Amino acid sequence: MTTSARYGRDAAIEALLSAAARLRWAIGSARQLILALGEAAGADRLADQVDRLANRAQRWLVTEPPQPLREIGGLVGRVTRRGRRGPGLAADHAALVDLDLDGLDLARISLCGANLTEVTLRGADCSAADASSSRWLRCRLEHGSLRMAVLAGATLERCDLSRARLDGTSWHRAVLAGCTLHGATLTDARLDRAELTDCDLRGANLAIVRSPHVATLAGARFVRCDLRDTHWGGRELGGASFIDCKLFGARGAPALAGVSIERPDLSRLGDGSQIATQSDVIAAW
């Protein structure tokens, strides 16, 4: 990067931070206005409108970097150098809110302990990311890649990972609730002691390509999950529990010794019209 380009970039960042400071002042003024409205006619409605605007503006400041300007400039430079494979970005314990990161190359990014809310990563490459103990709420990762990523101890709620590349991921002790993984690739994914509740995994591929001992399901719990047409080839399901799950079309002839299956739904439509037994599932699987 030339000297003039670097100065231009730093000036742009400085202007952004200055704008952020002015925005903070505007938010403070707006909230003072709310207090000053008092008992005026329509005060409640106006206060609600102003407060919503202030809160929306505040969302843009949640991720403002606290580093000095020089460090911020270095981070921007690393993000904008496309096609180069440097060290992954570090966003440990960051609070990321309402960000559009679609299609970005974020391979090896570190998100340990981070909180992500309404972040979109559709088509983004987050392969080999370390997202241990992170929390994800209403995030969208359709067609994205988290290949070989570590999500041990992570919590995901109402996230969309439809057709995402999740092969080789580690979900040890992770908790997923109300998430969509329709058509996702979870080959060789480690799910030991993970808990998935009310998740949609229709058509997902959970087969084993390498050794089942590397990608174990021991202690995993699937509760009220839609597992229709999933593929389990080569898996050992011993120690895993399936409770009130939809299992029509599940295939792959996995090893079923030691598995626990309670009240499985084998109806084609998943409408509960064919509640079966564990023996029925084993015979069909």
Rank of each mutant, 00 (worst) to 15 (best):
V259D: 12
H143I: 10
D265A: 09
L101H: 02
A257K: 00
R138L: 10
G38R: 06
E195Q: 10
R9P: 02
G113K: 03
R78N: 03
T120G: 05
A94T: 06
A5S: 07
D265V: 09
R140H: 14
E236M: 08
P254V: 07
S273G: 15
R108M: 08
I27Y: 04
G28I: 06
L96A: 03
H143P: 03
N205I: 01
V223G: 01
M1R: 09
P65N: 05
A41D: 09
R24H: 13
W171S: 05
R147W: 02
H182R: 13
L96C: 01
N115K: 10
E236D: 15
D48E: 13
L137K: 09
A257S: 03
R108H: 15
A30V: 07
R224S: 06
I208K: 01
D167M: 13
G83S: 08
Q274V: 11
E236F: 10
R6N: 11
R78E: 01
D265M: 05
A57R: 05
A250S: 08
E157R: 15
T216L: 01
R163W: 03
R52V: 05
R24Q: 14
L191S: 01
R52A: 08
R190V: 10
A21Y: 03
A26N: 02
G258E: 15
T197S: 06
L151E: 01
A95C: 08
A43H: 04
G88I: 05
S267P: 04
C199D: 05
T80E: 13
D98Y: 03
L176E: 03
L89Y: 07
D44Q: 08
W285S: 12
P68R: 12
R135H: 10
D51Y: 03
D244V: 06
R9I: 03
I13A: 08
A204M: 07
A149V: 04
G270V: 11
S170H: 14
R45V: 15
D226I: 02
S4Q: 11
L161D: 00
G249E: 02
I72V: 15
C199V: 10
A257G: 00
D188Q: 04
L256S: 07
T197N: 08
N55D: 09
D160R: 07
V79F: 14
L237D: 05
L35M: 10
G203D: 01
S132H: 07
R22Q: 12
S241W: 06
E142C: 11
T2W: 03
G252V: 02
C179G: 00
P254H: 05
T117Y: 06
G258I: 15
H143N: 11
R163I: 00
H172L: 06
A41T: 04
D48R: 04
L269P: 02
A54G: 13
